Structures are given as C-alpha cells and as structure tokens.
Simulated scan of single mutants.
Amino acid sequence: MPERSLQAPKPSLVEKVLLRCAGQCAVCRAWSHQTVCGDCLQRYARPVPRCWTCAAHLPPALMGRPRPQCGRCLQRAPPLDRAVAALDYRFPWDGLLQHFKYHQALDLRESLLERMNSALNAADVDAPDWLLPVPLSDERLRERGYNQAHELAKALARRRGLRCEPELLLRVRHNAVQASLKLEARAANVRGVFAVEPLKAARLRGTSVALLDDVMTSGATLHELASVLLQAGVMSVQAWVIARTPEPGQE
C-alpha cells in the first residue's frame, strides 16, 4: 500500500473565504475594514473598455469612443440597449461569486454592490424605471436557498432609488444549468423559459428596464429575457452584471 502523504491539500478559494476572520480581506488575508481590501481592488478591479451592448472587452484604442461595439454586436444587434459589467469573471471574482451564489455568503454582497455601483457611475447609464433580477425556478431556489440576483437587485435598487419588484418576471419552466452546456446550446436551453406576470404586465408597458444578474457568459439568458420584455411592451432593456466572462482569446 503506498504511503499516505502527511501534507494537507491546499485549500480552495472558497475554503479560504470560509476560513476568513472578520476584518480580513477575502483575497489576500490582509487586515482590512473592507471585505476586499483596497490593494486587491486596485490589482483585480481595474476598469477596461467594453462593448456597449454585450460588455465584452474591446481594444484600449476604443476607450473613450462613444458607444463602442464589438464586431459580433455590429453584425447582429442584441436585444439590449446597454450592457454594463463591473468585473471580469476571473480570479478572484470567480471564486467569490461562486461562494456568494452557492453558499449564501451574504458578507460579500456589499463589496460586489460597490463594484457594480461604481461601474454604473463610470458608465453614466440612463436610469431605468425598473431594476429586475433574473428569476430562478422553484427547483433551483430550493437547491440554493435564495436567489443571488434578487439579493443584489434589492440592495442596488435601494442604493440608486429604483423600483424593484422581482415578481414581475416569471421562470415558467425548469431548465438545465447554463454553465453545464456548450455556448451554442444555451440559447435553445432558455427559449420559452421566461414570462412577464400576466396580472402585472400593464405596469411594464412603455417603461425601461435594467436586468440584473451575477454573471454574463453567452448572454443567452439576458437576451431571452430582454426579448420577452420587449414583446410585452417595454421600450428599452439594459443588462447590469457583476462579472463578464472573457471572450475566447482574451484569457
């Protein structure tokens, strides 16, 4: 029988967050009054030029150009008038968001909200009439215990003085987790999944809506929701996300 190693396995980022003491940075463990310290924010949360309608990275030369768009959005306009991402979905934000999403780490909410609020201020977005979170199915809600997008949307709406009624949007069918699918299969996976609450649809007609989610990858979920809202009479739809996954070749 091979000899067992006495060396303990290195803890994952999630385990490190779980072990974090109050007053420590969740990333570097330095003592800090913030959940993520100023040094880590400077290192991992720098603003980058992004596409106006999908929030993908753009070349630095486009920084400052009005309403810059990537080639994909220029070829096929998405149903979003604007997309704003606060962060890149890479270290350390990928681990922190997973912990917030699957382990109810509400102590991370304020730090994530600060990043989102700062990104919105820098982007100079038009204030929407409604801020609505991406809804979860009942099955997924029972698995996780709460809707992370709902928690973020409620707090951000209070901070920015926006109306937030999550019940206006429904998830009418339980579907496979998007992260488990290839990019090309994700649009089909969310088709017909969402609806506007019929008894409250009149409240949305002629208004503007910002959808809030934690992570944007292919954009399929947000595009499907935007299409549903536009068909219900909404005039314009934005997408606000905490993090955007890198496009191929941007790693």
Rank of each mutant, 00 (worst) to 15 (best):
G71W: 00
R144P: 14
A153D: 00
E167T: 15
M216K: 03
G249P: 06
L62H: 04
P9G: 08
E15I: 03
P135H: 03
R90G: 13
T53L: 02
R160P: 15
P166A: 12
A176L: 12
A61Y: 00
E165L: 14
L136M: 14
K200C: 10
L108F: 13
P248V: 00
Q24K: 04
R244K: 05
A187E: 13
F91Q: 00
L112M: 12
H33K: 14
L6C: 15
E15T: 10
Q69E: 11
A202L: 10
P59K: 00
E251I: 01
E3T: 07
R171F: 09
L106T: 14
G23N: 09
V241M: 01
M63A: 12
T245A: 14
V134G: 10
V14I: 15
L162Y: 06
L97G: 08
D124Y: 05
L18Y: 15
A202C: 09
R20T: 12
V215Q: 02
Q42F: 04
N147L: 04
E143H: 12
T35D: 07
Y146V: 03
L170M: 12
H174G: 01
A220E: 02
R29Q: 11
P60I: 00
L19T: 08
L58F: 00
A195I: 06
T35P: 01
C25Y: 07
L96V: 05
L222Y: 01
K101E: 11
L222S: 14
T217N: 05
R203M: 10
R90A: 15
S180T: 15
E165H: 13
Q250C: 10
W93D: 10
A105C: 06
Q104M: 10
S111I: 07
T221K: 05
